[in-house]
């Protein structure tokens, strides 16, 4: 079976780096992006099973990413992470059909579990 593909978008390199290394340990194929534009372009080239995106980013933000992914690639699961743990953002994101929502700092174990659940749901 092919490796499941995961995309991580966060404007801080350390978040992407850490997510990549931790998720690769689980056997996923992981690509990271520092902003949304190249990430969305990449989605046009290849399908991803899960997109983990930061909420607040310069340019296209996480909500926008969520909307576009849901519209263009409904099979792809979106997980949102954010430094601004406020309830409004969470509610807005949940309304937009986000699979999960994590305030930063995110416990890596919980992110992994969430991704696992998302993938089980799909298959």
């Amino acid at each position: 079976m092919d490796k499941k593909r995961i995309m991580v978008i966060d404007d801080e390199k350390i978040v992407g780096d850490m997510a990549k290394m931790s998720l690769e340990q689980e056997g996923y194929d992981v690509e990271t992006f520092l902003n949304a534009e190249p990430a969305l372009a990449r989605l046009k080239e290849r399908a991803f099973d899960v997109v983990v995106t930061d909420y607040k980013m310069k340019g296209i933000d996480g909500m926008e990413v969520l909307r576009m992914v849901k519209k263009e690639y409904p099979a792809t699961t979106v997980i949102m992470i954010t430094a601004f743990a406020n309830l409004d953002a969470a509610i807005e994101a949940l309304r937009g059909d986000v699979h999960d929502f994590f305030p930063k700092p995110v416990k890596i174990k919980e992110l992994k579990a969430s991704i696992r659940r998302a993938l089980e749901k799909v298959s």
């Binding site: 801080e12 930063k104 700092p105 995110v106 416990k107 992110l111």
Partner: peptide
Amino acid sequence: DILGGDYLFDIQY
């Protein structure tokens, strides 16, 4: 704990 490797964190934290 947070900087110990079990968490994704950013500079803001």
